[in-house]
Design a protein around this nucleic acid. Structure first.
Length: 406
DNA sequence: AGTCCACAGGAAGGGCAGGCGA
DNA sequence: TCGCCTGCCCTTCCTGTGGACT
């Protein structure tokens, strides 16, 4: 079919969507359902800012998709609106600490904070304390309240420790005109316990816990969003229930529920069907998992991809030899397989120590599972297995075969 | 109870790319 | 341009570890 025809057919075709943006997990609706208490508590803690008083730092805990980020953004949005009318200067800065190469080191965190304040600094080359001073100078240049939202703060803590938190809170004692407030958002409930005592005491923070949504609450959220996102009557009630039920199984994850509904709608559109049904939700579930995995693998550096490729090759070999149940993949096996692939492709091999770290990273990403086990006198190692579905595996295997296969 | 294996994982340092100031 | 500084990635060296085996 000619491209022109594809486009013209697309334009003529009826879509189930009216406004797809409202089905995105980043979309902030006018009213957030089933989070009244949390929003009220958050607002109460932040409220002193309205009178120019310093407010406490806040830590928001809750599993994935429980509305932590959206509520924080919602409340800050309202605050900025009200403060604007009072002529006060408040500046919320949102940083996602999980973003690789963006805010995953202390240097990058401060570079990102400065960027958000309109000051660009080089990616490398400057001492970190120079960035501190720049940041300090920037915020203290006028009277203002800086509210820094550090999303997924536990990821940054695991990587670089808690010095950055200590430094951020200590800045307040030196600021003459301004004040910094920190809102930390984390999935890790034990996050605070792992902090150093001096950081804990300098934080003086309040805690808010977001409980997971249940299936009925998720359905309410989906119903509300579907009213603005879909053509009236184009989403079956059973499809909404299925999205809610599937997401409820995954720790009440609203993000997941919205993704499922949106992709189910896209699937129905692509098939030219006017109503989104359970069948589309099933197809969406499979597609989301596959796409996410493939994208994650694509974004990995070469060496990580080779390590994953060697794990896939070992897995395929075990399946071929029908030894899958009794043959386990260990770090040593992966390193040997990796070495062979490097030799064949002419790639410079890294050391086993480094490969060990890369295996741990792949585990963190959920592409593989690597469990530390002890085989008694046969040593302590990691038992490795793939954690991706068959469809994703085929796509990833083809992708890596093209790059590293011989 | 002691030994031993195959690593895990921490610490220190080297090499590299890139920025800064003279 | 050059020396010096930085962060980051990686290597090298090392100690620690859990449980099967002796």
């Amino acid at each position: 079919m000619e491209i022109k025809n594809i486009f013209s057919q697309y334009v003529q075709k009826q879509s189930v969507f009216t406004d797809k943006r409202t089905l995105s997990s980043n979309f902030i609706p006018d009213k957030i359902q089933h989070r009244d208490e949390e929003i009220q508590l958050l607002s109460t803690i932040i409220a002193p800012v309205l009178k120019g008083f310093n407010s406490n730092n806040i830590f928001i805990y809750g599993t994935c998709g429980t509305g932590k980020t959206i509520c924080a953004k919602y409340v800050l949005g309202q605050l900025v609106e009200i403060l604007g009318t009072h002529g006060r200067d408040v500046r919320p800065i949102y940083i996602n600490c999980k973003m690789k190469k963006v805010a995953d080191t202390e240097y990058r965190l401060f570079a990102q904070l400065l960027k958000e304040m309109g000051e660009l600094v080089p990616d490398t080359g400057l001492p970190t304390d120079v960035l501190y001073r720049k940041f300090f100078g920037n915020i203290d240049s006028k009277k203002q309240e800086i509210i820094i939202v550090l999303d997924e703060i536990d990821t940054l803590f695991k990587k670089i420790g808690d010095d950055f938190l200590y430094n951020l809170t200590r800045i307040n004692t030196e600021l003459k005109q301004s004040h910094i407030m920190i809102i930390g958002i984390t999935n890790d409930v034990s996050f605070r316990d792992n902090l150093d005592t001096r950081v804990k005491s300098s934080l003086s923070e309040e805690e808010i816990i977001f409980k997971p949504y249940n299936a009925s609450q998720l359905k309410d959220i989906l119903t509300e969003r579907s009213l603005t996102g879909f053509v009236y009557g184009s989403v079956g009630d059973s499809a909404l229930s299925k999205c809610a039920a599937l997401a409820a199984q995954e720790h009440g994850d609203a993000r997941r529920a919205l993704d499922l509904l949106r992709v189910a709608g896209e699937t129905a559109d692509r098939l030219g069907e006017p109503i989104v049904t359970e069948k589309h939700v099933d197809m969406a579930e499979y597609k989301i998992d596959t796409d996410r995995m493939v994208e994650t693998v694509k974004s990995q550096p070469t060496q990580s991809q080779v390590v994953l490729y060697s794990i896939i090759k070992l897995h395929e070999k075990a399946v071929q030899q029908k030894q899958w149940s009794d043959k386990r993949m260990l770090t040593g096996d992966v390193f040997d397989s990796y070495g062979a692939i490097c030799t064949n492709t002419g790639l410079k091999p890294l050391t086993q120590r480094r490969i060990s770290d890369l295996i741990a990273e792949l585990d963190m990403l959920g592409i593989i599972t690597a469990k530390v086990i002890s085989n008694g006198r046969y040593g302590r190692t990691r038992e490795i297995s793939l954690a991706i579905n068959e469809n994703a595996m085929q796509k990833i295997s083809a992708l890596l075969n093209e790059r590293f296969g011989i």
